[in-house]
Simulated scan of single mutants.
Amino acid sequence: MTEPQEPDQSPRTQLYDLSVVVERIEGRSVCGMKVGDRIDLVQSSRLCLPEGGHFCMYALQAVMPLLPAKQRQLPPGDWLERDDLVACPDPDERLIMRIVRTGIRSMKTEELT
């Protein structure tokens, strides 16, 4: 006879899934990106492109340091809770991206890196 299993008591962390979306291009798009292009961050660490899509690695490197913080609920007074625009470092492009929270998921803390 098997003993009844206790509910999983593992600590859990709430994380947002995110999309980084090209909101506007104020210069010329040297990298071939256009308004509406996006990359999604899901399940804590998975970057996903839409079928046939691409995302400039220089634009991505500008937004990468902010993503772990945007995945978490921050205090209301925190500037990063309010701000969600990031500029690509290429001054000729002046490409502006928006970080959008697309959903929230509960994950076992021990499974996070």
Rank of each mutant, 00 (worst) to 15 (best):
C48A: 10
R82C: 14
D84T: 03
D40C: 04
I39N: 01
E81H: 12
L47M: 15
D8G: 10
Q71V: 11
M1L: 11
G53T: 14
V22P: 01
P50S: 10
M107W: 09
E81F: 11
M107F: 08
V42I: 13
E111H: 07
T102K: 05
G32F: 07
L41F: 00
Y16Q: 00
I104R: 14
P91S: 15
R105Q: 11
M64P: 00
E51N: 05
A69S: 09
I99S: 06
I99V: 15
Y16C: 03
C88P: 03
D78T: 03
E110G: 15
E23N: 06
G32M: 07
T102Y: 13
L60T: 10
R72G: 05
V35A: 08
I25L: 03
L95V: 04
L47K: 15
R94Y: 08
E3L: 07
P68Y: 10
Q73S: 05
G52F: 03
L49F: 08
S10D: 07
M1G: 15
T2C: 07
L112H: 02
R38H: 06
C88T: 01
A62K: 03
P68S: 15
R24I: 01
L67I: 02
E81Q: 08
D90Q: 11
S106K: 08
V22T: 09
L47R: 13
R24N: 07
T113A: 05
P4G: 06
Q5S: 15
S106L: 08
C88W: 02
G77Q: 12
Q73P: 09
L66W: 09
L112S: 02
C48H: 14
V63N: 09
L66D: 00
R101C: 02
I104L: 13
R82M: 10
T113P: 14
T109Y: 12
K70R: 08
Q9N: 04
M1E: 06
P89C: 13
L66C: 01
L95A: 09
F55V: 02
D84A: 15
Y16M: 01
M64N: 03
T13Y: 06
A69I: 07
E23L: 07
S10H: 07
S10I: 00
E51Q: 07
D90V: 10
L95P: 00
E26C: 11
D78F: 12
V63Y: 05
E81G: 11
Q14F: 09
V63L: 06
D37Q: 05
C56G: 01
Y58L: 13
I99A: 01
T109V: 01
E110N: 14
Q9S: 04
G103H: 15
R24V: 00
K108R: 13
Q61W: 09
G103D: 14
E81K: 00
R94A: 04
M33S: 01
Q61F: 11
A69H: 07
G32A: 03
R105V: 09
E6I: 08
C31A: 08
C88A: 04
L15D: 03
Q14N: 10
R46Y: 14
M64A: 12
H54E: 05
F55P: 07
D17W: 09
T13F: 10
R98D: 00
E26M: 11
D92I: 11
P65C: 05
R82F: 14
I25Y: 04
T109W: 08
L18V: 05
Q73D: 15
V30H: 06
P76M: 04
Q71M: 13
G36N: 04
K70S: 02
L49I: 06
R98P: 00
C31W: 11
I104F: 14
Q14W: 11
T2E: 06
L85A: 06
G32H: 02
